[in-house]
Design a protein around this nucleic acid. Structure first.
Lengths: 338, 338
DNA sequence: CTGAAAGCGCTTACAG
DNA sequence: CTGAAAGCGCTTACAG
């Protein structure tokens, strides 16, 4: 049961190790009978090439890293991450890439690890999930020359490749929808954790302004993406009697729902709600909310595709991809007001 | 900006590559002045050893794999997994282990990948999250001689190392609590997805039997760990008018809550509820449920510790670890009935 | 189309 | 305490 090597397979097939290597790697110009003989031996023996040796020799590991900064740690349990990871692994699997996960629990851990992540030749490339503060190690990444892409636009304009969702437009559609239904005291539960939060807030404000509705500070609460924070934010908002609320993530919306029901108010009769993300039924409110579809899985998949492109063709020009959002209207939001 | 090698560092420090290697790996017997000189050069140049080369030469990659079978895919968004991963990465980071994530989206993908996962020398060891059907590839793992541990007990008694939670006792405590409060029509929302589901169901039945309460088929519903399935199960249960319900996961409990509130019933006045998992506030109901604390993060951490033990000391005898559970009583459950 | 050989960057007996 | 050298298992020009 010892591990077989190319050399041994070659011996068994009566060819050189180089030839076996070529068969394994599907080089085109091999005599068919030789190829078949080698392939048969490989099948019979169950030979599997040693990936470490291959990586060292070829200078390509086919391993990519997913970095989740410590700042995201607190909300890592939000379904956003698992769904993102589903999208990522789907494309990884399809392209025989191995995914390494780097999850940091503190700023220090992060700083310590980020150098070794980028400097040890283990990883071909990196995906970084965006958060406000990861700007700190991006310079380090750049000089390491490991290709990387961000999920979520960076805070500053830069030459960095990233994939993002059209958060501004999504938030605008959500708010417009409420305006069109006749609501005027439209609150929001926003976040300042990342640029997605900024953009959703921007969309909300833009929609109000465009419709000539004054932005009321009392109707704006900031939370942190957690269900609990959504609950608390909603409780604070309720005292100002909004007639509708745009919650910038479905997880927070779930928390907000608790607060609303606790106050014995009804959705949508007493207060209308629009969320953001369109989480899958497994983690969705009942009845499902009107919400903005955030293509999370597609973002994960797209990030890997972009990364593959960058690995093969170099990182300039920087790649950009903005995924569209879509308003998903459900009965729960409420009908046109009389 | 090219990558430095041991050889080059050695040249700069006036020593051989072997000596540099020893310094890097903290071998004890090196002359202090030599060590210092080498360390200075390393610090100045920012040299980082090539992990692939090291792994190949030392036959140890320090990479471990986390395998999440396709059967778990549907509920991967459940906070259970992210929390588990937090526990796993914590111990990985502390021990300089790199974590690779293998998430499969179909049975075929899984079968295809599992061989290469275990046969390519990339991974030192594996953690497998238990589900009913992964039994299928465990034999394959065993003959690959890659050490592995399961999270969650395997279905059959076997020689496999695993870490688990005391689900039976946890469920028993939950049910007993309801019995003690005076409830008699205690329903449950159970699952058959994995052995944890079996055990929680067992605990529920045991508690009823022990108290001489008849097990009523009408008060038992099976779901699949998703919020949606919890919602649907609760709707079905309500027609049989239970006075309490033990929901075997907090995520399903959240769904069940929706159903209860939709029916305009109150917790705990109309129906008492106990959950299982004690999810963090970020994803918890408001007000928080009475629930059974399931040490998920500890299970992840413990799995890695067990794996390290197995890697260093061999896999026999097989390791077992059962983590205790604890009933967390919260006001939401309701007081003693009159 | 195929093989001999150099090389990837380390580790680690072995010898001194 | 330190170095020369073999070896880990591949890939890949180079030559034929």
């Amino acid at each position: 049961m010892k591990k077989l090597t190319l050399e041994e397979i070659g011996k068994m097939a009566g060819v050189s190790r180089a030839t076996v290597s070529r068969v394994v790697n599907s080089y085109p110009h091999i005599r068919p009978e030789v190829r078949e003989r080698v392939e048969r031996i490989i099948a019979e023996t169950g030979y599997q090439p040693n990936l470490l040796a291959r990586s060292l020799a070829s200078d390509r590991s086919n391993i990519i890293g997913l970095v989740i900064p410590s700042a995201a740690q607190a909300v890592f349990a939000d379904p956003y991450f698992p769904i993102l990871i589903q999208g990522i692994t789907q494309v990884c699997n399809a392209n025989s890439l191995t995914l390494s996960l780097f999850l940091f629990h503190s700023r220090e851990e992060e700083q310590r690890a980020i150098r070794s992540i980028s400097g040890t030749g283990l990883l071909d490339a990196l995906i970084i999930t965006a958060d406000r503060k990861n700007a700190s190690f991006i310079p380090m990444l750049r000089e390491s020359h490991v290709p990387f892409v961000l999920i979520g636009r960076p805070e500053q304009r830069s030459q960095i490749s990233y994939i993002d969702t059209d958060n501004v437009t999504g938030a605008k559609m959500a708010t417009d929808h409420l305006i069109q239904l006749g609501y005027r005291r439209i609150a929001t539960i926003a976040t300042e954790q990342n640029t997605a939060g900024d953009d959703r807030y921007t969309g909300y404000v833009d929609a109000l302004r465009f419709s000539g509705i004054a932005v009321d500070e009392n109707l704006i609460e900031f939370a942190d993406f957690s269900m609990e924070s959504g609950y608390k934010a909603m409780k604070r908002l309720l005292q100002y009697e909004p007639d509708a609320v745009f919650v910038t993530s479905d997880t927070m919306a779930l928390g907000a729902l608790h607060a609303i029901r606790e106050a014995r108010l009804r959705i949508p009769d007493d207060i209308a709600m629009v969320g953001f993300d369109d989480l899958p039924p497994a983690v969705q409110a009942e009845p499902p909310l009107t919400t903005v579809r955030h293509p999370i899985k597609e973002a994960g998949a797209g990030a890997v595709e972009m990364l593959i492109d960058v690995m093969n063709n170099g990182s300039k020009p920087p790649r950009r991809k903005i995924l569209p959002t879509k308003l998903i209207v459900r009965a729960s939001c409420g009908a046109v007001r009389s």
